[in-house]
């Protein structure tokens, strides 16, 4: 049995497809594609499919991963799956899994912002201001539902503005994975807090998953 890792993008409207729905969508596509995949044993037998890192509803990504198990080696996996997937979900590559999902330590995200009332400069100042300071304290819900203050500064591994982008865009590397995970939405939340409202436009696209040594997750 081969653990095959699918690398795929989830763009445009597909950002509104939840994790659970994405799961079903891939399940369908795998059945339709006729790939020789492994089914779990037992009463409620289903094909094996696992997503090492969940992406929140509303975010785009060009670097999602899904693991399946093949009973025999298969050819042309991306094109076979793509013919059964929505236009804006595209399998870009498939290869035998190299790393353990636990090795994911960070994600590179591209948050972009625009506002019809604020100049780019004003927006830029608000954004940088909202993330400056020795520590960044946010309220987080604990598992028991209580609110707790946490410093997220350490989970922002790097943050810089992209100079030649059309809209105000940042390149942020945030903690991701099972150890520490920072939802990129906090950047938007910080900015909104500062502006007193959400900017007219925001979009986050995840572009890269990395290990703690900064290597691409494969």
């Amino acid at each position: 049995m081969i653990t095959e890792r699918l690398f795929f993008s989830k763009l445009r409207d597909m950002k509104y497809i939840s994790h659970l729905d994405l799961y079903r969508c891939f399940q369908r596509a795998i059945v339709r594609s006729g790939l020789d995949v492994w089914y779990t044993e037992g009463f409620n037998s289903h094909l094996y499919l696992s997503f090492p890192l969940a992406l929140s509803l509303g975010f785009e990504s060009s670097c999602e991963v899904a693991d399946i198990r093949l009973l025999s080696p298969e050819e042309d996996i991306p094109s076979r799956l793509n013919s059964c997937l929505p236009q804006d979900i595209r399998v870009t590559d498939a290869a035998e899994a190299v790393m353990d999902p636990g090795e994911i330590a960070g994600a590179e995200d591209r948050p972009e912002f625009d506002d019809l009332e604020l100049s780019r400069q004003a927006l830029e100042e608000a954004l940088c201001g909202s993330l400056s300071g020795e520590s960044i304290i946010v309220q987080k819900k604990t598992k028991k539902g209580a609110l707790k203050e946490v410093d997220i500064k350490k989970d922002i591994l790097s943050f810089e503005l992209l100079q030649d982008s059309q809209l105000l865009t940042a390149d942020a590397v945030l903690s991701a994975g099972i150890q520490n995970n920072l939802n990129p939405k906090v950047i938007l939340d910080r900015l909104s807090e500062r502006l007193g409202r959400e900017p007219d436009h925001w979009l986050v696209r995840r572009t890269r998953l990395i290990t703690k040594y900064g290597r691409d997750f494969r």
Partner: peptide, 9 residues
């Protein structure tokens, strides 16, 4: 939102 986007295969 999934109700309103279409885009099904």
């Amino acid at each position: 939102p999934g109700r309103y986007i279409g885009g099904e295969p």
